[in-house]
């Protein structure tokens, strides 16, 4: 009898493997293999018109940090690319922090509404969550242009004489990033707060805690998994942002995503672009591991 059951189990497992196989094959063919090609390309020499020359070279990684002199081949330290990584990291972190600061109160407010109103709030945040990023970024551009809504209103009110330059600044990029990814923060925090048992807050009040203490000592620690998930969902796309800085930074305020696309486009150094991508991937993976470890500590604690 038990032998028959084991046989049945084996049969089931075989069936399940087969069922998952097509999806796995597609992901390997169009996810894993392309990524491997980028790794290999980053270790080759650039072709004259894009592409690569199949010859091993560490030049791409060397030029991340050094500049090679055209004549005597000497290497000098050149922080230009590192600065862009740093800028990108700062944008990513600041965006994430701002999203937490705005997103947490929003999610908390949503979670404390009556059940029927909560659904409406969730729908209202789900719509921008999935709406077209390009169109939403264009929309921000419309508002902050010199002839945009903000400047027009301020001019009409006589607050200013000439338009304030908002577009093509670091501020514009930051605004665009927060605007783009804020719903990614609100919804996970909401999900963790929705299940919150408010009798715990009541117990806190009974023990003479004030509102602020209840918030920081009870509610925020319990919402931490949502905050961690939200931070990942905001940081990863903000760090790899491409459209936002391209449109709102106007080409003069590059982030690493634009630099990568640039290497695969007009200036055509594919190995360098590949090396940029690998470094970007490594940083994102490290950030993920860091965040996951922190959320892991919550469970033990």
């Amino acid at each position: 009898m038990s032998e028959l059951a084991t046989l049945q189990d084996k049969e089931d497992t075989r069936r399940h493997r087969l069922l998952a196989l097509p999806a796995i094959l597609i992901m390997i063919a169009l996810g894993l293999i392309p990524l491997m090609i980028v790794v290999v390309y980053s270790l080759m020499a650039p072709g004259e018109y894009g592409g690569v020359v199949p010859k091993f070279s560490l030049e791409a990684y060397v030029s991340l940090i050094f500049q090679r002199d055209m004549f005597d081949d000497t290497l000098t330290f050149s922080p230009a690319y590192l600065e862009i990584y740093l800028r990108t990291a700062i944008f990513g972190v600041v965006t994430t922090v701002l999203c937490v600061l705005v997103g947490f109160p929003t999610a908390y407010f949503m979670a404390t509404r009556p059940a029927d109103k909560r659904n409406i709030w969730v729908l209202l945040l789900t719509i921008p969550f999935w709406s077209n990023l390009l169109v939403r970024t264009i929309a921000v551009m419309f508002i902050i242009r010199d002839e945009g809504l903000i400047n027009t209103i301020l001019l009409d009110l006589g607050v200013i004489d000439h338009p304030i330059t908002l577009l093509y600044t670091n501020f514009a990029i930051l605004l665009g990033l927060v605007y783009s990814f804020l719903p990614f923060m609100v919804l996970p925090i909401y999900a963790s707060l929705e299940k919150f048992d408010f009798r715990l807050a009541e117990a806190g009040f009974d023990l003479y805690a004030n509102r602020f203490q209840v918030l920081t000592q009870i509610i925020i620690p319990l919402a931490k998994p949502g905050i961690v998930t939200g931070s990942i969902l905001v940081f990863v796309p903000a760090f790899g942002a491409y459209v936002t800085p391209l449109l709102l930074g106007g080409g003069s305020h590059l982030m690493i995503g634009d630099l990568i696309a640039l290497q695969f486009g007009s200036s055509r150094n594919w190995p360098l672009g590949s090396a940029f991508s690998i470094v970007l991937m490594v940083i994102v993976m490290l950030a993920l591991l860091f965040q996951l470890r922190r959320s892991g500590q919550v469970k033990h604690g």
Partner: peptide, 13 residues
């Protein structure tokens, strides 16, 4: 979890 720009260039490659 893979940044979109990385997927984009790897598919291009």
């Amino acid at each position: 979890i893979v940044p979109e720009i990385v997927s984009a260039v790897s598919l291009l490659a």
